[in-house]
Design a protein around this nucleic acid. Structure first.
Lengths: 224, 224
DNA sequence: ATAAAAAATTCTGTATACAATATTTCGTAT
DNA sequence: ATACGAAATATTGTATACAGAATTTTTTAT
């Protein structure tokens, strides 16, 4: 997103290296559920499917392990990291605090244009909600939250927030199944848009944080 | 130690895999300044020095890159990540927020014994301060902050806090050179100990956060 | 038939080999 | 002498090969 690039600085053009491609590919397989949490990662099967050798594949596993998506057990193979309910709660607890910070910084540092662009995104989300189109809404929702964090102007915050989001993405996705919950989430977003328009950082932070904690009740049943 | 093993269940002694050893080794070289920020990492020289082959070495670089200590530029070699002042400030901004959360959770969740143990650590630090023994003080200081975060009972918070700390460790170390600053830091720690004893989470969070922001003024000149 | 032991197989960790890309060195032309 | 270009060199990215550990299968003894 352009919004992000603005704050993140130089967008790198360099051709995606094989390593990055494999990382992205496996990450997708995990997020989309092709590789299920707790299941063993069959190296030989995957390298064949991906058409790469073990070297870039294993390096990819190392970075995914560092990202927390994969667990490498010495001499015993790798598994898709399985999140316990406690861990999910812990992540949301941290995310809530990070979004609170992001909200305050964004209200302090963002330009009017940037805020307007975020509000436009919010309006667009509402349209999808009216039409009950879950998938586009879901994607825009991710973008919206990423957008606020991006406007904080804090690259470290962006990075960490992005990582936690990636780890939770799958769970969030499956937890997005109740219409009742959906309405609640939309209402919270409405509040956030109001606070954002008013540049009320404390208020926005409060809502964003509450929004995140509420996510817990929305996804808790989805956690194995 | 045994106590831990008992309560934690099957804690395996597993021989540190070569990968982990290399990661730890390079991390130390970076933190201790043998590998200076911005400098290129000479693969052939290092694998010879470490006595390992390229495979575990490169995998180690991948995890260090994911940790943010190393930057791998496709086909152009790896360098020790150099932090700009802005990045350091960003990290401290995030750390401040994380420590605030940790403080509140710790005051809510820690047992009396755990708090007592932290306060004992604080007292010990004071002794080292009186004797002006920087190194032991420095190490205990790290332990103290880690301790508070640990008492939050949030493993994700522990992990992220640990990572940011690792990235900043070197800078923190070199920034620890002014006696005036030292006195200030000790005074802040005194306040923190008081709030901790009173289990005043909001207050402790406030001080911890301020402490972290103040760190900026203490290390800003040390940042290249 | 079951359980233990041994053998075979599979899989992971590490080393090395090869290919592609970047960097340096050297020579040539202006 | 300097700038440009080509060859030589070094370095990175990827593939493969080999060794050792774990797992599975087979064999054997009760």
């Amino acid at each position: 997103m352009d919004l992000l690039n603005q704050t993140m600085g130089a967008l790198r053009v360099d051709k995606a290296t094989l390593h990055d491609q494999v990382v992205a590919r496996i990450r997708d397989l995990i997020v989309e559920g092709a590789l299920t949490p707790g299941s063993r990662i069959d190296e030989s099967a995957l390298i064949e499917q991906l058409g790469v050798s073990r070297t870039p594949f294993r390096e990819a596993l190392r970075t995914l392990a560092a990202e927390g998506l994969v667990e490498i057990r010495p001499t015993r193979g790798s598994v898709v990291r399985k999140l316990t309910p406690d861990e999910v709660f812990s992540m949301l607890e941290v995310l809530a605090q990070l979004e609170r910070l992001a909200a305050e910084l964004a209200c302090k540092r963002a330009t009017e244009d940037q805020i307007a662009s975020l509000l436009a995104m919010h309006d667009e989300m509402l349209v999808y909600y009216e039409k009950r189109e879950r998938m586009p809404y879901f994607k825009l929702n991710q973008e919206f939250h990423r957008g606020i964090v991006g406007l904080s102007g804090n690259p470290v915050l962006v990075e960490i927030h992005g990582n936690l989001h990636a780890r939770l993405k799958r769970i969030r996705f499956v937890g997005n199944r109740g219409p009742d919950f959906w309405a609640d989430a939309v209402a919270e977003h409405e509040e956030m848009a109001l606070a954002l328009r008013a540049r009320d950082g404390a208020q926005l932070g409060e809502i964003a944080s509450r929004h995140m904690v509420n996510t817990w009740t929305r996804v808790r049943d989805a956690v194995s």
